[in-house]
Design a protein around this nucleic acid. Structure first.
Lengths: 146, 146
DNA sequence: ACAATTTACTAAACATGTTAAGTAGTAAAG
DNA sequence: CTTTACTACTTAACATGTTTAGTAAATTGT
């Protein structure tokens, strides 16, 4: 049945290609995160919060690619673990404003070196130009309207 | 805190960039799949099986980026739904050999047009050259040793 | 001002992701 | 030939993904 009958080869299908590439990049990052009791999602949330300051949950969901129901649960544990803090929005009381705590920021700082080392390993093998090129294309793809 | 203090902007971090790009591509595909009662994972499995013929579960897991425990559960329901069939390996009895059924293949055929249309929409906006370039870079990234 | 709609989130239910542990079959080492 | 290690899964437990439904606050239309 090895005949590519009616579909593109999966290696040339964007969804699977993106997923496989991501698995390669995430493998060592997951190793790092396991050592500090943090999931991939919590790591993304901390990075988004560090980058954006105090934001509402919908913004985190968009930036970190999480659905709100997942975020609700994850932030609950992150708050009780002291990595983030939450407060009700002052003007719009539907909103919940979230920011990273010093403890959360410290986790980022402590793992910056490892995170950079992983990126450098990849860059050393592919070359900086290709990585930049790839990131440009990914940003462009992300902006496509479907 | 909007100061990119000690990490790369998340939009230039490979893991998040790959995830966001994938969300863009997957959104319309998920819509298609919802109409045919198929999850994204089952769709990937069918495509891998159609492409590779009868293979063992570990191979599916690798190609479709699923862990074996997830695959065990998913294949159980796909078998009872008649989309795939399983048998014990003849020489090595630890292996479970899996192949797509006619019913499974029919699901692929019925949705080929939609799947292609989605791809074409993206291609029309980004251009074929960029898509090809992106796929090449993704394949290269996937092959990196980390 | 009031009803209808929309927005931002939460709750619940079920599927999948992820890790750890267990089982049976196979291969390797002595 | 037997013990040991390894491989290909399966099971279980808990976190997250995903959909549907619900709630409260804000906005819109009249």
């Amino acid at each position: 049945m090895n005949r590519q009958s009616h579909t593109t080869r999966t290696s040339r299908a964007l969804p699977i290609a993106l997923l496989r590439a991501r698995e390669t990049v995430m493998a060592p990052i997951r190793d790092m995160l396991q050592g500090i009791q943090l999931t991939e999602q919590k790591w993304r949330i901390l990075r988004v919060l560090d980058e954006m300051g105090e934001v509402e949950q919908s913004t985190i969901a968009n930036e970190a690619c999480l659905l709100l129901p997942s975020l609700t649960r994850i932030l609950r544990t992150m708050e009780s673990d002291g990595q983030i803090s939450r407060r009700q929005g002052s003007t719009d009381k539907r909103r919940t404003m979230v920011k990273i705590t010093n403890e959360g920021r410290q986790i980022l700082e402590e793992n910056l070196a490892t995170s950079l080392a992983i990126h450098n390993t990849i860059e050393a093998q592919m070359g900086q130009e290709k990585i930049d090129n790839l990131l440009d294309l990914l940003e462009e793809l992300q902006a496509v309207k479907v």
